[in-house]
Write a protein that binds this DNA or RNA. Structure first.
Lengths: 336, 336
DNA sequence: ATAATTATAGAAAACCTTTTCTATAAAAGG
DNA sequence: CCTTTTATAGAAAAGGTTTTCTATAATTAT
């Protein structure tokens, strides 16, 4: 029913040269006489031929494919990150399988095995559920390059790229405490590194500053990166703010949660930031869309993406990459 | 350096049966004696074998891969759409190459040829630049199923899934005019179908209602789906609102543009919606995050995604799909 | 009991490349 | 002018599957 794509055999036949020679022209890795190169190139153009990447991958060479595993595409954090990765991949003729786990362990595992079956040349996983999928990454990191962004350093052969979440979180807490806040709530998602590390810093800084950690000020929602995160955060914060009227500030683990909290505050007719200061994390574009605009910690997602992509390219091509693997964060104070 | 993945040969050797029989167990499309099936399955499990999808694809069968071409991932419209597609793909053991064109013709063409070389089983393209890439789609639609979402019906062998953008746009204009607005601005992006059709309706409805179309009220920004869209729209609207102080309403082609316009109005201390009514398009989650919340036209992106994915699955598997290809839209009036 | 059928499983071709090995022709060296 | 080297290009193997064709064993029919 459908038209067949031209193969290297067609080019060979038309040009009058052998398959091998055509292949050499295609890859340019062996010497070919200029005149034959021209003839073959003409045939290639005429037939509009381009090599079958599956066959190329099959012979054991590279598939020019990597896998990107993200928790969700519904948080612009990941969109910007992917944009950074994509830019580098394009330059290297790579294409990505973008796999969204919807923050589901089982799905993440399924994606990993799928990517292996598809012989990707490497995997970049962003904020993975390492608690549960750790052994999977451990395993595949022995057979291909694996880069973990903003994840836990538990996998021996994995490579890591992270923004300095500890520093970012510390800045938030220090800023709030310096402003005189004592009752600072903390809003986080489920059990992954990105939230755990922030909670750890939250506890540490409070303690350092002599503020007792009040467990009832720590709120947790089920997932952190879906469209429903905003609403779930709002509900959670509505409840919390009604119960504990002396809360004056919130550190939210990402911007979606922060927006939810802001919506809750508005509904309760609280003045933001006078009655209630809110600081989010990631500094996604959403921060400048809300009214008042949202304070947040900038992670430079695009750079995070570019860095990890460059790193995985050099791992695949076995060249050395000399670049930072821990990127700076910066507290951006806006109107909340 | 890296560990080699087990192949069907390993399974055959371990189980004592031939490669063919293992393949038959794997695919379940030919009869195999129960007892041997059990033995082979044991070997498969023991070796943790799963078939190499490249090899599978190479023999001409399916690659279980489709390509998704989107203008951007930085508009949540596309995120939600992909989510819908993904859900269906997962059920069918398909994986997608998600290709973002950044609204660039050349890149879109590059993606298309790349997808063909990778032997995808089909392509879903969302809001493509058909003006310029049309012939590409025309071409590949003869060799594989192609679905165009919210695009122009210019490709003979392509299949189309769209939300009823005409009806949605008409509703907006009729609503605004019924409210008494006469000076209605229109904000659009570059030359693609999604914006062209809305402009067409804008002109038609105004005319029908006896309002003369004022060309200077039609504003155009360079691209419509990137992070910079908000700011570019804001600048454009600032200029327009300053020049033409009698504008009382705006129909923006998507939510990002509408947010930009809202920001402009706020900066000019205009009361929204009293002085200036804004209606966007797509009804992305952003609409409920702004203050005041944004009115918009709902497109049900997820359904759009699910529908096109189901359609392409039935095209690939040559089964018939009986479903709507034009989905309803609905005007959602919020606070702008 | 023998012939004809059916159930089951193996052998080999095909899919499209890359790459190693081999062969030829041209150039260089003596 | 003959031998050795070099430049160039072809032949063939390999990569891991699916599938068609073939072969054997088991069953059924006569």
């Amino acid at each position: 029913m459908f038209i067949k794509k031209k193969t290297i055999v067609d080019v060979a036949r038309l040009s009058g040269f052998s398959i091998s020679t055509v292949s050499r022209v295609l890859n340019g890795n062996y010497p070919v006489k200029h005149s034959t190169k021209v003839i073959i190139q003409e045939a290639i153009d005429l037939l509009n031929f381009s090599p079958n990447i599956l066959a190329r991958g099959l012979i054991g060479a590279k598939t020019f494919t990597i896998g990107i595993i993200v928790p969700s595409l519904e948080n612009l954090f990941f969109s910007e990150l992917i944009r950074g990765i994509d830019d580098v991949l394009l330059d290297n003729n790579y294409t990505a399988f973008i796999c969204s786990t919807n923050e589901d362990d089982l799905l993440e595992k399924k994606h990993i095995t799928n990517l292996v079956d598809r012989k990707v040349d490497g995997i970049i996983s962003i904020s993975p559920n390492t608690m549960s999928t750790g052994s999977y990454y451990e395993n595949i990191s022995r057979s291909m390059p694996v880069i973990i962004i903003n994840g836990e350093h538990e996998c021996e052969d994995c490579h890591f790229v992270s923004s300095d979440q500890e520093a970012g979180a510390a800045q938030v807490l220090e800023y709030l405490i310096a402003e005189g806040h004592q009752k600072i709530a903390f809003l986080r998602g489920h059990d992954i590194y990105a939230y755990n590390i922030k909670e750890k810093i939250y506890r540490r800084i409070l303690q350092e500053k002599g503020i007792e950690v009040d467990e009832s000020l720590i709120a947790r929602i089920s997932a952190g990166n879906s469209l429903s995160t905003v609403d779930e955060s709002k509900e959670k914060m509505l409840k919390l703010l009604k119960e504990r009227k002396n809360i004056t500030a919130l550190f939210a683990c990402n911007d979606l949660m922060a927006v939810g909290a802001l919506n809750a505050a508005v509904q309760l007719n609280m003045k933001v930031p006078e009655d209630f200061r809110i600081i989010g994390f990631d500094n996604t574009i959403i921060c400048s869309l809300t009214q008042p605009t949202l304070s947040s910690v900038d992670q430079s997602m695009k750079l995070l993406g570019v860095t990890s992509a460059k790193k995985i390219m050099s791992l695949i091509n076995e060249t050395t990459y000399l670049g930072e693997s821990i990127l700076e964060t910066a507290l951006i104070i806006r109107k909340t």
